[in-house]
Computed example of a mutant assay.
Amino acid sequence: MNTHLLMIEDDHRLAQMVAEYLGHNGLQVAHQADGTSGLAQLQSPDTGSLPDLVILDLMLPDMDGLEVCRRIRALPGPAAQVPVLMLTAKGDPMDRIIGLELGADDYLPKPFEPRELLARIRAILRRRGDGGTPAAGQSLRFGSLEIDRDARTVTVGGQVADLTSYQFDLLVTLAERAGRVLTRDQIMEAVRGRELEAFDRSIDVHMGRIRAAIEADPKSPKRILTVRGVGYVFAKQQE
């Protein structure tokens, strides 16, 4: 099965370099130079034409990448679920945090090594299920919360919770270890397969998004609890 990516990037030289490198590694890259064109491609009526992942630059000529990411997540149907890897300015953690809050699955600061970009893309696609399938017929249930690992969906009281693919895997990582306190490093390593970057607090942003999706009161969570100075624990007993 061919893997198709969409790169929304106004630097044509960079886009060409990335397309050539990823092409040599079996990934096909379509390129759009601005947010409007990228969104138009994602809004194609042919669902089969959707990319498997979007590489999204933060700085675009017509609108910034944060706005593009927000609009992607607001698209109807499957287009809203396409994973987004955001390219951000090095040393600007606020852009990364906002991007994650808007629904980006991962970020990569510029300048970057093509090998790291490839590794990040493959990790996202593996989490999404392109690199393997979870055990069949196994759902996790905690009261009104159900996590369907086959369908990669989360419902609360029968209502679908809006989570990115990365946030889904974070939730599964915690739920599978319900009652066990996990450090941020352990959570990120389990999901992304690499150690947590120094001072990287993106895990807290994702946890906030998950709580907003599954908790009755995100400010007073009952499912995902913070263990001060350590990390997080998923509560075994829930209503």
Rank of each mutant, 00 (worst) to 15 (best):
L5G: 04
M7P: 01
I8F: 03
E9C: 02
L14T: 07
Q16K: 14
Q16I: 00
M17H: 10
E20G: 11
Y21G: 06
H24Y: 10
N25D: 15
A30T: 11
H31N: 13
H31D: 07
A40G: 00
L42A: 04
L50I: 06
L53C: 12
L60F: 05
P61E: 05
D62Q: 09
D62K: 06
D62C: 07
G65Q: 02
G65W: 04
G65A: 07
G65H: 02
L66Y: 00
E67T: 14
C69Y: 01
R70P: 04
A74F: 00
L75D: 05
P76D: 15
P78C: 11
A79L: 08
A80N: 10
A80M: 11
Q81N: 11
V82W: 05
L85G: 05
L87C: 04
K90Y: 10
K90W: 08
M94E: 14
I98D: 03
D105K: 08
D106Y: 13
L108I: 12
F112E: 02
P114G: 12
R122N: 15
R126P: 02
R127Y: 05
P134K: 11
P134R: 13
P134S: 13
F142N: 01
D148G: 07
D150E: 15
V154D: 03
T155I: 08
G158A: 08
Q159A: 13
Q159V: 11
A161Q: 07
Y166S: 15
Q167P: 04
F168H: 03
V172F: 01
T173S: 14
E176Q: 14
Q186G: 02
I187Q: 01
I187V: 14
I187W: 03
M188A: 06
E197W: 13
A198C: 00
F199C: 00
I203S: 02
D204A: 09
D204S: 10
V205Y: 05
H206K: 06
M207N: 02
G208N: 06
G208A: 04
R209N: 15
K219D: 14
K219I: 00
I224D: 04
I224A: 01
L225C: 07
V227H: 11
G229W: 10
Y232S: 05
A235V: 00
Q238I: 10
Q238T: 13
E239F: 12
